[in-house]
Design a protein around this nucleic acid. Sequence first.
RNA 1: GGCGGCAUAGCCAAGUGGUAAGGCAGCGGUCUGCAAAACCGCUAUUCACCAGUUCGAAUCUGGUUGCCGCCUCCA
Length: 454
Amino acid sequence: MSRTKEPFEPIQPGKVSIYSCGPTAHARMDMGECRRFIFADLLSRYLDFRGYSVTHIMNITDMDDKTINGSEKAGLSLSEFTEKHIDYFKKDLADLNIKPAAEYPKTSEHIEDMVLLAEKLVNKGFAYEKLRSLYFDISRFSDYGRLSGIDLNKIKIGATVDLDEYEKDNPRDFTLFKRSRLSELKRGIYVKTDWGNVRPSWHIQCAAMSMKYLGEFFDIHTSSRALVFPHHENEIAIAQSLTGKPLAKYWIHCDQVLINNKNINDKENRLTLEKLYDLGFSGREIRYWLFSSHYRKPINFSVERLEYAKHSLKRLDICINSLMNLKDELSYPELDQLIYDIKHGVVTAMDDDLNISAALASIFNIIKQINILILKKMLGKDDASKIIDAFRNIDSVLGIFNFGDEISNPEILRLIEERNKARAEKNWDLADNIRKQLISLGVTVKDQKMNISA
RNA sequence: GGCGGCAUAGCCAAGUGGUAAGGCAGCGGUCUGCAAAACCGCUAUUCACCAGUUCGAAUCUGGUUGCCGCCUCCA
């Protein structure tokens, strides 16, 4: 809330409660959403790593303009439509190696909570009904704008909204419940309340669900900067006018994903996960790309940048693989220091506002050291397994390492065997041919010691 | 118009008062049957621009320019 970097102190010692703005179940996730979820994942994994008991809640919006319109177009019931997208969402999270949150509450299953919350607001005089919609009376909440730094008197009213459609007392007021349209009523998309047949606004959804699962004042609310105003301001307004507290102690926002320095919102250019998969990138590569620059800075998309991510991961993989293939019975005298550096470098960096670039730089430094030690034949089998354990440990935060299994595909093993034989016979043409085949199978061929890595 | 953010090499990107991390690409070398991988060396007198504060500034202050986001029913 201070709009500056400050040390983290949980409300309850040892425990952290996190609420993240989740997806709207109407389409395959786009890169902005991906980044938001990967960021929330990194944060909760890191706090967990640092010994906190983390409760992470992420909502799923399954009743709003987008889902209602989408389902109508698709000729499905609202729940059929949203379930389909929720399935995609869960699958995509797994592909991106995002640890599941404790709960994914859905709007459609928490309408009662929202109604109760709104009733309290009405009783306290913070909300009013007008023509069967319920609005929040912003003039009653003097703290409005603290998070985003906006001044309500200076904003351009109606810049993005057609005010003629609404009947607010003050155009700055925001909607809590919106009266359902006739088409929605016909499809049963409404809830009967004292104010009318309505459906909840986005703002009251998040406020009600976060408070239900995490209490009226919790530790961290994460999301993307694009949602600070008005959404988060509105959540705060709802919570604080009832509890006196601004919903969450810390509000952490990641920045957006851009293309050519532009935020492309239109449907044509929506950059979805699916598109990147089609371009041949994996969830792991997308994860690395999206979290490898600081969360508070915008990221530009390009195929080239994803290629860089791929390359960086390959460097990690090759090093890990070389470690796994060490056979010597050696013992490196300064192993403890090396192991300490692996963890310490990451922790020091991440403790400072999740400085992932510094954390990755420290890892690449270590990789280089390890490569040198391997080259000089100073590391043994046992050393290697201890180093790998240390990497596994930090990977519980990063989720990017590949501790791939030994090569198990019999076809690949056969080709390697055959190529080694050809090499022994100095049959270079055959050896080179097989190498081509192996590479096309995604195998990295490293000679010299005749190591092979997948 | 208001509010907020950003600007560091060919590219990506750390660094918020002590003399420019890391990755990619490039060049030269070692290794190799040739490659790949790995390693060694080189690659920003300089941090958008202009003033100022300071022994010292990419870092602080003021100004300028450029770019981006948001402006309350898209979530």
